[in-house]
Amino acid sequence: MGQNFTQIQVEDFRITEEPFYLPIADEVALFESAYNQHLPVLIKGPTGCGKTRFVEYMSWRLHRHVGDRDEEGVPLVTIACHEDLTASDLVGRYLLEGEHTRWIEGPLSRAVKTGAICYLDEIVEARKDTTVLIHPLADHRRQLPIEKRGELLQAADGFLLVMSFNPGYQSVLKDLKHSTRQRFIAIEFDYPTRVQESEIIRMESGCNGEIAQDLAKLGEKVRHLKSHGLAEGVSTRLLVYAAKLIVDGIHPLRACMTSVVWSLTDDEEIQQAINEVVCSIFEE
């Protein structure tokens, strides 16, 4: 059995091929400027509108030589935040090895050392006490204290803290603390326009222009239901999924049913309404 997976250290991950990204406004220039000025970036926007893809694209774009490794792009360390994410998970912890302990560095420490872009996805999901940990990193100090070892890490030059959050469905309890959010410049993302979105769908899925246009139209219509029954509009990602299924031979109605209607909501009435919109756009 051949080994058919790759395993690399988290700080070695680089985007080596240009990811498809269609700039919507001046976000690329803004990010580049922030990177150059060491300003941490907060990316706001609804689910599936391209936040993660943008970070990937930027990491590829910011061709930098960091440390000894002469690779393409800036390393990208992505940390998906969740409720149980502790400070140890980010910074590092001691493990037992034989009769000794061994220090295992967390992904944040590694990113700080290697000068990577550290992308904290869905930061509000993390507990507030964890979030406070990044404060010294996110201001002029650019330092990460490692309490357990009594050390202080000064970030490498290429390091940039980026975090994303979706203001849409967060309750008051899950809002960002002001002390946190006021350390970042914020770039707001929204769903692309119909024309842009159909281009994205076409490029991502390889479907024909007509299907892409219809799906983008569907996206626009379904998003009209946001806050009128739907908590979130349909993401571009889901539309791309639908397009991929269609390209693979699934009937458009079925593809939209599985990737849009059922994914979006469990409320039968809204499901039916969305399905009626799908049936209005795609022919049987």
């Binding site: 239901l225 809204i270 309404a273 969305i274 009626e276």
Partner: peptide, 14 residues
Amino acid sequence: ANLFRFYGQALTGD
């Protein structure tokens, strides 16, 4: 009524 309302809303927006 709800189905039609959602449908009209999706098509028209606003």
